[in-house]
Design a protein around this nucleic acid. Structure first.
Lengths: 246, 246
DNA sequence: TAGTGGTCTAGACCACAGC
DNA sequence: CTGTGGTCTAGACCACTAG
């Protein structure tokens, strides 16, 4: 039950009320005050207790259901899901992933050039063939060891990119700082053996298993802002995904 | 614009109105009547045209935004995202994946037994140690070729499982048919080289690159209903994921 | 400044689960 | 039968975007 929980809402804050509620429920779960399987008060009672309308409370709950923290069942109620959500479902780059895991990422920029887009790149990014695009190749390290080889293409007019800025910050971080709001990414994940070149760059043996990732990311206008084709050393990295069925 | 689109709503249908709207917009995108980048009418106008309230129209749009088909930006409008969503974000098993791709999956059940849960399995499934669980091992084929080696554990009281039923239907399909509603899955994806045993079963060479998947799935009561530890031949399979930032 | 989505309210009726 | 979430209405005001 949430009966014992205290909620602290600030109506003068620019933070939406539904989000304040969601954050505090989320925090209660993280702390363990709401154990896995625990039932929340029903939506009406929760709304009464918080002095909010039911739709606002529903919005808060829906937000956490979409993140995989809560599950709902009609006639039963809303409960905390068993099993920790290992990672929130977010649109992150490898740099953020590693930093979050406390693995001190660093980057070596192998190449960064501006070229006219060939047919295939233009189609992927949804720009006319021949448009200027930035092509870059980076080597990502964690704790001093090579982890991944990253190849990216993005429209040249999106933001200025330099080897210096890419060495200290991840691509996604730079995009966000430039006001680009990432919204959707289509990603294909596979695996294959390392080629001799890849093995040399990643300081691994030829034929070592690599995770492959092919990703195109779109902003809040629906435009492609980045395409990436990456390989990661499987011995040093794995992906975590949370799937939600609506 | 959606101005030229026709919408056909049935208020007597048990299908929710927001879902009817979402389906028809989705269909218009699939057909190409709404091209990538196309702007929808604004929410107020759309609500007027359909004879619905704005919240209902918003719910329909939100549904498609969550699926990655649409993007919204305040002050701008709602647009169709560039780049096809290759696969809807759904909670599917390998069997469904392959069948959807028209690859005629078939299954050979190598083992299926009921055993008391050891410490680790019990913790993963959130049941007391010693509880009866089903342990199974399957070999999944597509077009006659071995694709994946699947190992699963699930609570024994959930549903009766036989080698016969598993040979003709996927595990997720059987779970759904038994009234289990899957809601959340935490999944870890990696890669490694095939062991000699795996290579023999998968009819591949030793050291061949494999995709590894470790997944725990929860139902609408928040209980773990299945844990899987799978390996797939990377040469014959890859995963597609769509990531959405809220 | 005009137009858009973002948030919020205060109700209503319905469908489904479980006793 | 009772309680729960699921759906729906008809408004309101605000914050942000773009010209």
């Amino acid at each position: 039950m949430t009966s014992g929980l205290e909620f602290d809402l600030d109506r003068s804050s620019p933070v939406p009320l539904y989000f304040q509620v969601a954050e505090q429920i989320s925090e209660a779960i993280r702390r363990g005050d709401l154990a896995p399987g625990a039932r929340l008060d029903n939506e009406i009672r929760l709304a009464d207790r918080l002095g909010l309308s039911r739709p606002t409370v529903r919005q808060a709950i829906q937000y956490l259901v979409d993140k995989g923290l809560l599950v709902r069942k009609r006639g039963v109620g809303t409960q905390v899901v068993h099993g920790q959500v290992r990672r929130p479902v977010e649109l992150t780059g490898l740099h953020d992933d590693l930093r979050r895991a406390g693995r001190e990422p660093s980057t070596r920029v192998l190449e960064i050039t501006t070229v006219p887009a060939d047919e295939r790149t233009a189609a992927t990014l949804g720009v006319p063939a021949g448009t200027e695009v930035v092509r870059m190749e980076r080597l990502r390290y964690a704790r001093g060891e090579p982890i991944a080889l990253l190849r990216n293409w993005l429209p040249a007019d999106l933001l200025p990119l330099t080897a210096e800025s890419l060495q200290r910050r991840g691509l996604y971080e730079l995009l966000r700082a430039a006001g680009v709001r990432l919204r959707v990414a289509n990603q294909r994940v596979g695996a294959r053996a390392a080629t001799p070149t890849e093995a040399r760059l990643l300081e691994d043996r030829r034929g070592a298993p690599l995770i492959t990732m092919e990703r195109t990311t779109y902003d809040d206008r629906g435009r492609a802002v980045e395409h990436g084709s990456h390989v990661c050393r499987a011995s040093h990295y794995s992906l975590e995904v949370t799937l939600i069925e609506r």
